[in-house]
Design a protein around this nucleic acid. Structure first.
Length: 874
DNA sequence: CGGATCGAC
DNA sequence: CTATGTCGATCCG
């Protein structure tokens, strides 16, 4: 373990790298890297955008620092263990390596720009980019020599290359061309997988098999040439226009253009391709015959694409998708590359490949790996053990796959859409009215799109970007799926209002707003929802979307109710959403909740669907009970109720209650109280003064160590008040609390441990709960007492045990029962920590044993609490 | 679930 | 002047 400290990039480097200028194609008439960087910096420096970029860079640097700190703490022994574990996996992976498929990745060269150049020959020799002054989508190769790249704003590109022609986007056209290309691809793999408009994966394994026996005739294609000189906008792909040009062989500007293109000689020599000149009648007809190998097929595909569209494509051929994708990049533009389907060829290709070339490894991951001294895929392999300790399981598994050259081979049937959204950037908008109407407009557009696909979703997300380029999203999930513009807007508007109120009296200064709908219903759910909604709602309901009236909350779409009065826990909501069971069951749910909450009006579905209440405010129809003094409040106003509760809390009448309510997430004004009585009982029974369940056990743990409960309550109360008055944003108030108690923070591990030791056993069966015998950690898998007192080490041991192939079955038998038991408990008790499903409490992951840089930050903190693992084990 | 972040086109 | 739009995935709390 040499701890060579890599110098973290300066932020300037980070920014320039982001602009994609690290690789320099030092062309004759282009600019060199240095000049390019200088120009960009000048155009950039001091801008709000740049300031935000710096901020982001620093965040990444902090992540890296955390990671490095973590790395320092890793012992040789840990590393060795990890090495064994990883290598075991690597061996399995190696054994299951599949080289039997032939996957092709097709990538159109500078697609949009190429289309525009094709349709306007005047652009041929010029540097061209497609997009606008504010953003470019792509550029041609000429422009790239000046550093003009995709994702670069046009005005900067202009500074780099004053002669640059910027063509506006014309999606319709690209779509049409894309369709033409896809028609060809479909012949080789009917279930090919398009990626955007200009890329696709094909699995031609079957096709190759079939083609083996094809006669030449079936593999012959006639060459047609374009005639661009005469007509500026000739449709090259017109099928009946088979004209000929005498210089087709040597200088067809499209087909045979550069070094990597197929020349006639090459074709004839290397691939048994025959070019025949038929002199039938007065027409000279040229044709080509392609072979039967994968490479020949791909040449054929590219040839046909070019013939049909006048555009060139690059391609990669490999045994899996990842490799194919990287291959297509190898000889771009207008080239192709193949990795032979044998292990050695794969490894040779992988060997010196910069990790950034790997799909899925972007600038951030690259920078993090760089900090570990990892630049190439071999280094990625060499450091596999370390990576398994520093990154999440999914991450390091992926790294391992990459470094072994493994990848997926099935171009899975187009996955169902998961979300739909629309967003817009504009020059600053800072008045509430405009913001609301903009939001409304977005909702309208989105609703239209949703309609086209007949989709309804349960989650609405509002996205905002302020003039400083800071982005935030706010999401809200409703019980009844939404699809119309009114429905969506009703939800989005509330979130927008919250945000506006959050900074009042200052205005929100926005540069972008977006709306997204996700959580789509499947077919069954659609039916269910239709029925249940109709049944639920009282006749005559109508959404009274009171547009543009920030003050007045219109129909809070359904679960706002659950957020305000009803208060389902996270798991309740999730369960309800997932199983979408019968209405009967839902009513049962209500009954249960009602009972728990000790609320009078029973099983009144109206509470769930306050649309049915009509124009009146929701709150007026409910009996509100103070969760502290348990007195019903006459006041119908939530704000007033909150004030009452604050008073109650400040009166230090019931301290425990306050902690419980804290555990229930949500600093959200109207509903931060509302305790779950049953949980209260359990916790009290278990003397849970110190830690409470819930996913937020960290936070709870923090608070629990505060010496004075009164002081704590004060902070809670005052913070919530400040929030009420819009002085603090939600996050701010949380941060405020965290800062105030940061010195008291104890680790999650410890928090978990407290639970174990004090009360949690009957609530949360988990490994360590059962694994602690006589103050010694006993592995629940191998049943051997462990010497270590370090919980994370112990965890890793259990992981190793679990991972041993021999005990594979045990894994099923042990893990699953425990899990389901936990779930059972969750059901009966309500919201609980997810951290107990398996051994690692820091990550919420289902599978055992990961540790990410972020998650471990808290772990390192020392604790004043006497309830540390050390003291306990001692 | 909700929020942030990453990555890709 | 002027730094996108859309989507999926992952991680954390």
């Amino acid at each position: 373990m040499d701890s060579t400290k890599k110098v973290i990039n300066t932020s300037d480097d980070g920014f320039l790298l982001r602009m994609g200028l690290n690789d320099n194609k030092a062309g004759m008439q282009g600019l060199d890297k240095e000049k390019i960087n200088k120009i960009i910096m000048e155009a950039t420096k001091g801008s709000r955008f740049y300031e935000n970029e710096l901020k982001k860079d620093q965040q990444v640097n902090q992540r890296i620092e955390k990671m490095m700190q973590l790395k320092e703490k890793i012992t040789n022994q840990q590393l060795l263990k990890a090495q064994l574990q990883v290598d075991k996996l690597a061996l399995e992976l190696e054994q299951s390596r599949d080289l039997s498929c032939t996957i092709v990745h097709i990538d159109m060269d500078a697609f949009y720009a190429a289309v525009e150049m094709r349709d306007n020959p005047e652009l041929k020799e010029k540097p061209v980019a497609v997009g606008s002054m504010s953003m470019l989508s792509t550029s041609n190769y000429h422009a790239r020599r000046f550093g003009v790249r995709a994702a670069m704003p046009g005005f900067i590109a202009k500074k780099l290359c004053p002669h640059l022609t910027i063509v506006p986007l014309n999606f319709k056209k690209y779509g049409d061309v894309s369709k033409e290309v896809r028609e060809i691809l479909a012949e080789y793999d009917p279930s090919f997988m398009p990626i955007g408009l200009d890329e696709a994966y094909l699995n031609i394994t079957e096709y190759l098999e079939e083609r083996k026996n094809w006669p030449e005739d079936k593999r012959r294609y006639f060459i047609k040439t374009e005639n661009t000189a005469k007509h500026g906008k000739q449709d090259i792909s017109a099928p009946d226009e088979l004209e000929l040009n005498e210089d087709v062989h040597s200088s067809s500007p499209i087909l045979f253009e550069d070094k990597t293109s197929i020349t006639e000689e090459q074709l004839a020599a290397t691939s048994h391709l025959h070019i025949e000149v038929q002199s039938d009648q007065e027409l000279l007809l040229n044709s080509v015959v392609f072979g039967t190998s994968a490479e020949e097929v791909v040449k054929e595909i590219r040839f046909r694409i070019e013939q049909k569209t006048g555009l060139t494509a690059s391609a990669g051929i490999a045994p899996n998708m990842m490799l194919a994708k990287m291959c297509s990049d190898q000889n771009k533009p207008n080239g192709q590359f193949k990795i032979s389907p044998d292990r050695q060829s794969v490894m040779d290709f992988i060997k010196d490949l910069p990790i950034r070339k790997v799909p899925g490894i972007g600038k951030v991951t690259e920078k993090m790996l760089k900090a570990l001294g990892i630049l190439t895929c071999t280094e990625l392999y060499q450091q596999r053990a370390l990576l398994s300790l520093l990154f999440s399981e999914t991450s390091w598994h992926n790294f391992l796959d990459v470094s072994l050259g493994l990848g997926s081979t099935d171009l899975e049937k187009y996955g169902e859409r998961k979300s739909m959204s629309t967003e817009r950037t504009f020059s600053e908008i800072n008045t509430a009215e405009e913001q609301y109407s903009l939001c409304q407009e977005l909702c309208r557009d989105l609703a239209q799109d949703l309609q086209k696909e007949g989709l309804k979703g349960k989650t609405v997300t509002l996205k905002l970007k302020n003039v400083n380029f800071e982005v935030k999203t706010r999401a809200s999930t409703v019980l009844s799926a939404v699809s119309t513009d009114e429905e969506i807007f009703a939800v989005a508007k509330d979130m927008l209002r919250t945000e506006i109120d959050g900074v009042a009296p200052h205005p929100l200064r926005l540069r972008l707003m977006g709306v997204r709908v996700s959580g789509f219903l499947n077919e069954d759910e659609k039916k269910y929802q239709q029925r249940s909604i109709i049944n639920f709602l009282k006749p005559g309901k109508q959404a009274n979307a009171s547009l543009l009236q920030p003050g007045k909350s219109s129909c809070e779409h359904f679960t706002k109710a659950s957020g305000t009065s009803h208060r389902e826990s996270f798991f309740d909501k999730k369960r309800a959403a997932r199983q979408q069971s019968t209405q009967e069951l839902l009513i049962n749910e209500h009954a249960k909740e009602q009972k728990l909450h000790d609320i009078k009006s029973l099983a009144n579905p109206v509470e769930e669907t306050n649309e049915a209440i009509g124009p009146k405010n929701l709150n007026e129809c409910q009996s509100l009970t103070c969760p502290v003094c348990f007195k019903e409040q006459s006041d119908s106003d939530l704000e007033a109720l909150n004030r009452h509760i604050d008073k109650c809390l400040n009166g230090t009448l019931v301290k425990d209650n306050a902690e419980i309510s804290m555990s229930e997430t949500s600093w959200d004004n109207a509903h931060y109280y509302s305790p779950d009585k049953k949980k209260l009982e359990i916790c009290q029974k278990n003397k849970m003064n110190k830690s409470v369940d819930t996913a937020q056990s960290t936070k709870i743990a923090d608070y629990s160590t505060v010496n004075s409960t009164e002081a704590f309550l004060k902070v809670v109360a005052s913070t919530s008040k400040e929030r009420e008055h819009g002085l603090l944003s939600e996050t701010t108030s949380t941060m405020y609390l965290e800062q105030n108690f940061s010195s008291k923070i104890i680790s999650l591990e410890n928090a978990e441990h407290i639970e174990k030791s004090e009360c949690a056993q009957e609530m949360q069966p988990s490994y360590s709960a059962g694994a602690i015998k006589d103050n010694v950690l006993v592995c629940p898998v191998c049943n051997i007492a462990q010497k270590t007192t370090d919980l994370s080490l112990f965890n890793r041991h259990v992981d190793v045990c679990l991972n041993k192939g021999i005990i594979q079955e045990l894994r099923e038998e042990i893990v699953c029962p425990v899990k389901s038991q936990v779930m059972e408990n969750l059901k009966s008790v309500g919201s609980m920590s997810r951290g107990h499903q398996c051994m690692n409490p820091t990550t919420g992951t289902k599978r055992p044993g990961l540790m990410t840089p972020q998650s471990t930050s808290k772990k390192a903190k020392p604790s004043n609490s006497k309830h540390t693992i050390e003291t306990f084990l001692k």
